[in-house]
Design a protein around this nucleic acid. Structure first.
Ligand code: ZN
Ligand code: ZN
Ligand code: ZN
Ligand code: ZN
Lengths: 358, 358
DNA sequence: TAATCAGGTCACTAGGTCAA
DNA sequence: TTGACCTAGTGACCTGATTA
């Protein structure tokens, strides 16, 4: 293992809970219990575990048993790698997950929203908000994207200037959406058909939206390799437009993540169309798309209200809708064959992956 | 070493998992871990390693630990040579396995008998014949299939009666064809296009043909679990037809293997059509399909002549053609969606695998 | 004598187990 | 569900035989 050497330098202390550690587990120095814990829970959708205390529980040797949600979040944030979990005993594992799902699904009722104070976020909504951002950050997409940019910049000129090296990064931007949707609350409550429809209709816009966030957060255009790569791939005009979109992108990252999710749950990316009636017939999920949208938009509105006051919220909400509409219009123009081929393949894969295991 | 030169041209990338390689190991460019893996497992009977996920696991640096069965299969399919393993090890484990294997699979071909008769098989043809049968037996498909049947029978009733448990076995019957073609003489001399065309057109018939052989040799229908599984999967009528086909199947196993190969090299499974001219244009291989077919049919004919005399050979050859034609007609009816889905996936994989590495 | 490629070695870490 | 303990498989590194 490459990491063997690193383990020599590290103290034998669990990075997660501070207990005594005996070695690296899933790429992080952890104790036996955190290792087992991660193995058991990392592949479950994160919303199976809900924190009851505000998503910032301290995790120590003594308290690690108190909140699984925060423990798992800490595992991920320290870089424990779920890809190293092998899928051996398929049947038992999957069966158990399925059971868990059925048991837990009715349990967290996120719908008691408009209870007492209709203008502020309920505890449940705070949790939802927190979950969404954590799911997005789960695999550290920003760090990963930075790494890829560094990697590209370090390639020999021949390889660096290949379209593929840029396309790989863009593909990663888009693929992040899949792992986001995989674990985000509500998505798996939709029917398979609904999921498929959403992925097929919204992936292009969603991926672009997400790309804009990641490009901004990683300052991707400061890497000349990426900058020139994009100009070759998409043309100068499109790059300019991308930069304009980035300038106009909402500054608050948390907000962008919520908006990503709302966009994901929008019918054909047309959240302004209020006519859900016709398409509702095709949705057979128990928790309907419409309902989910309502929950999310309520949460967003309250959050905006809380952050910026009524007028600021209204303004922000308005510009969010404007932004998405502009994005849809722009992405509809399909700048590059290579790009749309890549996205098409990705959409296929995502569809397969997110409409399968149930 | 003769192979040293080859290693100069090859990139230092493991052919099995894509990890960094440092040289040739067992005649293939592999990493350290795949080398060690092959040394440890190649001499075991293959049924010691069971794939849990359909015998087509992807093997990468990250996933190579997930499925030993598929990893080993990939090692063999890329030509890693178990004969280069010297068993100096004191490890009695390996010794025992080796003995078992030698007992089970008498290696010296029993065919080097009658040589100097001009109207019968030449030395080269005897070797070819011997090669074909040994390639077929290479991974002990019959033993493996028996093992899978035993395994199914030993499952708890709930799992045993699942369609999947039967489909897994049938899938194995079909998948054997891939490893057969992978190593059989002449196949890799064809152009990639020719290979692709053959796989796409002939796999359904070939797989069925092979299934019939394996079902007979393993007495699969004597396992009630398999018997009922098939009736559920394909219906009573189709099972009855399968049994009829098995009754009519050529008794001589060696003959069936040759016929399998001839079928594999037939254009769209139509060996009776003598009009190769039109399709020849698409075949760009140096050794043409037509030529290969000629060699194989000559060999078959001589072998039949040698075994059964002229009249017997004629009769047998005729019934072989009849048999394949009936098979084609029957398999064209697509008994079950699950089945054809499974085969389609398999054909995809086989195509990818057999048209890639050259 | 260096390069290559066999086998050997053992720290490491995955999954499994079972009592609590 | 947890976590202490176990075991088997893995792979980075080593050794030695063979060869050009
Ligand atoms: Zn710990
Ligand atoms: Zn918590
Ligand atoms: Zn490898
Ligand atoms: Zn496998």
């Amino acid at each position: 293992m490459v990491l063997t050497k690193r383990s020599w330098h590290l103290p034998l202390i669990c990075q997660i809970c501070g207990d005594k550690a005996r070695g690296m587990n899933f790429e992080v120095m952890t104790c036996m219990s955190c290792k087992a814990f991660f193995r058991r829970h990392a592949l479950q959708p994160i919303y199976f575990l809900q924190c009851q205390h505000g998503n910032n529980c301290e995790i120590t040797q003594l308290t690690r048993g108190n909140c699984s949600a925060c423990r798992l979040r800490k595992c991920f944030s320290f870089g424990m790698n779920p890809k190293l979990i092998r899928y051996k005993s398929k049947n038992h594992h999957h069966h158990r997950l399925l059971k868990n799902k059925n048991q837990r699904l009715p349990k967290p009722p996120p719908l008691n929203l408009l209870e007492n104070d209709s203008s502020t976020l309920t505890n449940i909504e705070w949790n939802l908000l927190s979950n969404i951002t954590h799911v997005y950050d789960r695999e550290n997409p920003i760090e990963h994207a930075k790494y890829m940019l560094e990697h590209q910049a370090s390639l020999p000129p021949k390889l660096r200037s290949k379209a593929k090296s840029t396309l790989d990064i863009v593909e990663y931007y888009y693929s992040t959406i899949q792992s986001f949707l995989e674990r985000v609350p509500y998505f798996h409550d939709l029917s398979i058909d609904a999921r498929r429809a959403l992925i097929q209709h919204n992936s292009f816009t969603l991926g672009t939206y997400n790309s804009l966030l990641l490009i901004r957060e990683t300052n991707a255009f400061d890497y000349s390799s990426y900058n020139f790569g994009c100009q070759n791939l998409y043309g100068y005009e499109n790059c300019l437009m991308t930069k304009k979109f980035i300038t106009a992108l909402e500054q608050n990252r948390t907000l962008v993540k919520i908006m990503l999710l709302i966009t994901a749950f929008s019918e054909n990316c047309s959240i302004v169309s209020l006519d859900y009636s016709q398409s509702m017939t095709t949705m057979t999920s128990t928790i309907s798309l419409f309902h989910t949208q309502n929950i999310l938009v309520s949460m967003l509105w309250k959050y905006l209200n809380y952050q910026y006051g009524f007028l600021g919220a209204a303004k922000c909400f308005h510009s969010f809708i404007q932004y998405v509409l502009n994005l849809i219009r722009w992405t509809a123009r399909n700048p590059s064959t290579q790009h749309s081929d890549m996205v098409d393949t990705l959409i296929e894969n995502t569809t397969r992956s997110l409409t399968m295991h149930d």
